[in-house]
Design a protein around this nucleic acid. Structure first.
Lengths: 162, 162
DNA sequence: ACAAATGGTTCGCGCATCACCAACGATTAC
DNA sequence: GTAATCGTTGGTGATGCGCGAACCATTTGT
């Protein structure tokens, strides 16, 4: 056996992530509809609860979406008084976006409704596994904005690893 | 302290999953483009490698998408000789879809290219963590098709858990 | 003080995804 | 033979989203 060429399964988790996220999103849509929310809103609200008081283009960065679309998203959320835009005192061009009390409440309601969906999609995982899954994803998500921008800056063309 | 109301952080991982999957998908698109593949194709190919020789509506089930759209997806893949449709011997109405050698090769190429993306998006996770993440997602994904259909059958309206 | 750059907003274009309906050919089941 | 099933094609419509253009308010540079 010469050098044992390390026949890795070469499993990448991008497709897996995509697959599961899709399943989750599909079910979540139907559950969230009665609350007047869509998955996108949930992500935004969750991010805002974590890092409240960010500017809109900071949000655009962490949500990885175009600035103009952020406006629309926030408009919808503000129309239902779930978030507030205040002008920043230091730089009055900026809008400081923050969760309102109603927003935090709705978010909790949504999360509550989402628990059922989790039960369906992640039925094969026991509570402990779900918890570690949560922690892994959380860790990845909170650290990514920086590392992602960094990676994009360092290797704009292509960074091949194999 | 009356009954200690268990002030769970009530963290749901649906938004997290959505968020990370989006980041991953965005980067994956640009990396996959030169290979003539899009994220959807990758998911399909991965599923086919795992459970080869399924009928198209079985695929529709596990991919959670409409049958008619499956046709288009498979057409694209077949046009590049990455999959083959053969008629099932038992039931000649069915098409048995299977990965070709070229398909398996392309899939590996794509996974290789995807490794770089993983590095960017999951930079905060060390190899061990990524492995457990993979195993958790894998376990959830392989078990979901059944449990999901089951859940939909049992509770078509709404299954509130809290 | 004037020009340039920046954050946010609005409008509109274009593209991709996707569910759904309808109709059809081939095949199987009752 | 009739009905149901699998796949295929074509079309429609909603949605999401990136992108560019123009605009206002504000800040920054000189």
């Amino acid at each position: 056996m010469p050098a044992a060429p390390v026949d890795q399964p070469e499993h990448r988790l991008a497709p897996l992530l995509d697959h599961l996220a899709r399943r989750m999103r599909l079910r979540a849509e139907t559950v969230l509809a009665p609350l007047g929310l869509r998955p996108r809103h949930l992500v935004a609200l969750t991010v805002l609860r974590a890092q409240g008081g960010s500017s809109q283009q900071a949000l655009a960065g962490t949500l990885a979406m175009d600035g103009t679309n952020i406006v629309g998203l926030l408009n919808e959320l503000e129309a239902e008084r779930l978030i507030e835009r205040r002008r920043s005192p230091e730089d009055r061009r900026r809008h400081v976006v923050e969760l309102t009390d109603a927003g935090a409440r709705r978010l909790r309601e949504a999360e509550c409704a989402l628990a059922a969906v989790e039960g369906e999609v992640l039925g094969a995982l026991d509570p402990g596994q779900r918890e570690t899954l949560y922690e892994l994803l959380q860790q990845a998500a909170t650290a990514t904005p920086a590392s992602c921008a960094e990676a994009l800056r360092d290797a704009p063309g292509g960074a091949q690893t194999c």
